[in-house]
Simulated scan of single mutants.
Amino acid sequence: MKITRQILLLPALALAMATGTPAVPASAKSVSEVKIYFTYSSESGISGSSAGNAQIKNGISYMPANLVKATGIEILWNNASKTATFSGWNKSFSVQLGSSTGVLDGQKVPLGGTPYMSNQELYVPVKFIAAALEGGPVRWDPAKKTLLVNHLHMYRSYSETFEGGVYSLSLDSGELYLTTKQNTKHKLATLGRGLDVIDFTFEHTPAGLTLLRVSNVYANRICMPGTTPIF
């Protein structure tokens, strides 16, 4: 089911690394192939789990960067600077290939390891990802040779740029914001929790205002906001 809303708009940490290191296997080789399993959830009640391959390199656990996409995080790779930028709703961090220091929510932090490339994939320290996504400590299951990380947070969002402004929507809280060209942020509406697949459509009204249609596909419930948007 597709539900469309219309909104009439006026013109326009320092990283707390977990102490200790999981009891990962020692190896004559510098790199050991293992598995990783993690769980995640959102404030709107959505939850899930993912599994993949990981590596133990010189006693430090690393995971492929792309695995974080399950939590709603998007990744932008800058080939010139060899930097990966991770972004989601009110969450941003970045790492640079070969550097043991990264940036988390605007602050420089130690990564607990050094990101590297393997089989054309970027690997980042698991403990850094767990802390950045506000999860629990990294644990090691020796029987299954698997790294375990639970309770990662989700940062699902959707955004589009229109006439120089960036319209951003949290898919979990339903909060809709406009960030202007002057980098000022304005809350426009709250559209309900647990949104799914979102699409924005912008139009100009005869009166010179901007009409924003927010379409939520597959949702089965809509909460009417107590604000001035029209639907």
Rank of each mutant, 00 (worst) to 15 (best):
R5I: 06
L8Q: 11
P11K: 07
P11W: 08
L13A: 11
A14G: 13
L15G: 06
A16Q: 14
A23W: 09
A23K: 12
P25M: 03
K29F: 08
K29A: 13
K29C: 07
V31M: 06
V31L: 05
E33K: 06
V34N: 01
V34S: 01
K35E: 11
I36K: 00
T39Y: 04
T39F: 04
E43K: 10
G45H: 02
G45P: 00
S50K: 11
S50F: 11
A51Y: 07
G52R: 00
K57F: 04
I60Q: 14
I60N: 13
S61Y: 05
M63C: 08
M63E: 10
N66P: 07
G72A: 12
E74S: 11
K82V: 03
G88S: 09
G88K: 01
W89E: 13
F93S: 01
V95E: 03
Q96Y: 05
Q96F: 04
L97T: 02
G98N: 07
K108W: 09
V109P: 00
V109D: 00
P110M: 02
G113Q: 01
G113R: 00
Y116F: 11
E121H: 08
L122M: 14
L122R: 07
V124L: 00
P125N: 03
F128K: 00
A130I: 00
A132S: 07
L133C: 08
E134R: 10
E134D: 12
G135N: 04
P137A: 14
W140G: 04
W140M: 05
D141H: 08
K145D: 10
T146P: 03
T146Y: 05
T146V: 07
L148T: 09
L148P: 01
H153I: 13
Y155E: 03
R156P: 02
S159N: 12
S159T: 06
F162V: 07
E163N: 13
G164Q: 10
V166R: 09
L169Y: 03
D172C: 03
D172E: 15
S173Y: 02
G174H: 01
L176H: 09
Y177W: 15
L178R: 12
T179A: 10
K181A: 11
K181L: 11
K181E: 12
N183V: 11
K185L: 13
H186N: 09
H186V: 04
K187E: 08
K187W: 05
L188N: 02
A189V: 03
A189E: 09
A189H: 02
A189R: 00
T190K: 15
T190L: 15
D196G: 15
D196R: 14
V197F: 15
I198F: 09
D199I: 08
T201Y: 13
E203M: 11
L209V: 06
L209M: 06
R213S: 13
N216D: 15
N216G: 14
V217L: 13
Y218S: 15
A219N: 15
R221C: 11
R221A: 14
R221W: 10
C223Y: 15
C223S: 15
T227D: 12
P229H: 12
